[in-house]
Amino acid sequence: MNIEKLSSAFSNVLGLNGDKITDDLSYGSLGWDSVAHMKIIAAIEDSFDIMLETEDVIDMSSFKKAKEILTKYGIAF
């Protein structure tokens, strides 16, 4: 459930099919630039109803990393 929410945050912003959203997806590829980054952050904050710390916002360099970071906010995958 949570994994689907996170996947769709990424796929909506990046305009990608869900199967492209894998742990390897990282900043700098498939349209994930600084603009998309902020939109992804916004989408994550909205769908999980959380506020991410600055450190976490700039540290979210891959999909895998995003899962790790969200775990700190009590979201399980």
Binding site: Y27, D33, S34, H37, E55, V57, I58, D59, S61
Partner: peptide, 9 residues
């Protein structure tokens, strides 16, 4: 690097 990256800061 851009400001969305930790490395910039």
């Amino acid at each position: 690097e851009t400001i969305a990256q930790k490395s910039f800061w």
